[in-house]
Design a protein around this nucleic acid. Structure first.
Length: 420
DNA sequence: CTATAACTCTCAA
DNA sequence: CTAACGTTGAGAGTTATAG
């Protein structure tokens, strides 16, 4: 028995909490570099703006309807998310934080009890304590809880932002599922929708009634599980503790095009530093460093180039400067002059636990774990980047654009809003 | 020929 | 005035390679 609680238009709603004057304003939150729309208010959705739409293409529409746009304010959203998860954790001992704005709860012992009232309590509590609107879905499996949440958001069954699918009788449920396109199902994306449609499976109900073995043959074990889950057979369990990452990536588009190797090197060093921090936080070592650069694939009138390289390390490490050295070595090999680079990225691969590191018999490099520890401590205490590698550069002219940021209302004293 | 590694594709937020 | 299109991670399936 699962619940899935999901915030409505999460980033937009976070902005509105601290700027209530925006409550009715059509508004969006943009991705990094102020590039694409990643959150839309209902007013903007009603105008037909799609998720992921490039902001510059919406200029005319935005002007016409007075759409306000904000840069992503991740420190604000992460803080609001933590508060929301803490409140929801009081409703069940078993919680899986699935993403920044949603979590699953296991409601053990409530198998045959209508939980609508519980759902309403969650909603009003989070509304009152945090100012955020959320919807709640209940179902016998994770996939059904997700679907129930969708129904709650669209008010298809149940009411006022809560839907308990288990309370519907079979006919009613079939009617609702038959009216939902198959792509509303968790795990059914663009490609699968296309292929399923060709086989005559167009609605959620079609998929629920499909033969799981046949679909496993034709597609994958993943889709088989989905079909079973739609029929109330739980195949996906709650994952309460996030396992360590198997790979850690850091990549960004630049605020302006970059042409030269020294500048690319700065960016790559900066990305490595971020990735290495994450690596140390989970007490792992990286055995391989990957580095890649690319031009802007959307600009078809300029020469295109993209390349990446994996650099195996002689000895697994989480030492930032050693990782930077490897990445720079790789970057020099893939760099070609004469291109307008738009993005660079790094990844740390072949991760292993620090606790049982494989040593190198011939290693002469000093162990600088203590140095890394101090660096992390200082940066935690005084803010990211307080202490950093010289290789990261100082001016960082390539830094991404964030021209439309709201204040860090909840995490910076000097950015607290004034109260009149 | 088999086991593993590396790569590709799809999906999610 | 012009140009301006995200990031991170997982899992399954397929292909390449090593032994």
């Amino acid at each position: 028995m699962f619940a899935l609680i999901d915030a409505n238009n999460f980033y937009v709603s976070c902005e509105r909490v601290f700027n209530p004057a925006l409550a009715q304003t059509p508004m969006v939150v943009l991705s990094n570099n102020d590039g694409c729309v990643v959150a839309r208010s209902n007013e903007v959705k009603a105008l037909g703006v799609k998720m992921g739409a490039p902001w510059f293409q919406l200029r005319e529409l935005a002007e016409k309807h007075g759409i306000r746009a904000f840069s992503s304010n991740y420190s604000l959203y992460a803080d609001m998310s933590n508060r929301m998860m803490n409140v929801l954790a009081t409703y069940s001992p078993d919680q899986e934080v699935y993403s920044i704005d949603e979590c699953f709860l296991v409601m053990a012992g409530f198998d045959h009890i209508d939980l609508s009232a519980s759902g309403q309590r969650m909603r009003s509590q989070i509304r009152q304590w945090l100012g955020l609107p959320v919807c709640v879905g209940f179902g016998a499996t994770k996939t059904l809880a997700k679907l129930a949440n969708h129904c709650a958001k669209k008010n298809l069954a149940g009411q006022d932002g809560v839907c308990d699918l288990r309370q519907l009788d079979a006919d009613e449920r079939s009617r609702i599922f038959a009216a939902l396109p198959v792509n509303e199902v968790w795990g059914v994306g663009r490609k699968l929708t296309e292929q399923l449609t060709r086989r005559g499976i167009q609605t959620v109900e079609d998929l629920r009634r499909a033969n799981p073995e046949t679909l496993r043959q034709a597609f994958s074990v993943v889709l088989e599980r989905t079909v079973r889950e739609l029929n109330g057979v739980s195949c996906l369990s709650l994952e309460q503790v996030a396992p360590n990452k198997q790979q850690i990536m850091s990549s960004r588009s630049f605020g302006t095009y970059v042409y030269d190797l020294p500048t690319l090197s700065e960016a790559v060093a900066t990305y490595i530093a971020r990735a290495a921090e994450k690596l140390r936080r989970q007490a792992s070592l990286a055995g391989v460093v990957q580095v890649y650069i690319r031009t802007n694939p959307f600009k078809d009138n300029v020469p295109q180039y993209q390349r990446g390289l994996n650099i195996p390390l002689p000895e697994a490490t989480n030492d930032t400067s050693r990782l930077i050295r490897a990445a720079h070595w790789g970057l020099k090999r893939i760099y070609q002059p004469g291109f307008a680079y738009q993005k660079a990225g790094v990844a740390l691969l072949d991760l292993s636990p620090q606790a049982h590191a494989q040593m190198n018999l011939f290693s002469t490099t000093p162990n600088r774990a203590a140095l890394m520890r101090v660096m992390d401590q200082i940066n935690t205490a005084y803010g990211r980047g307080t202490l950093h590698s010289a290789a990261e550069g100082v001016r960082q002219s390539w830094r991404m654009k964030r021209d439309r940021m709201s204040p860090a209302y909840t995490t910076q004293w000097d950015q607290l809003p004034e109260v009149n």
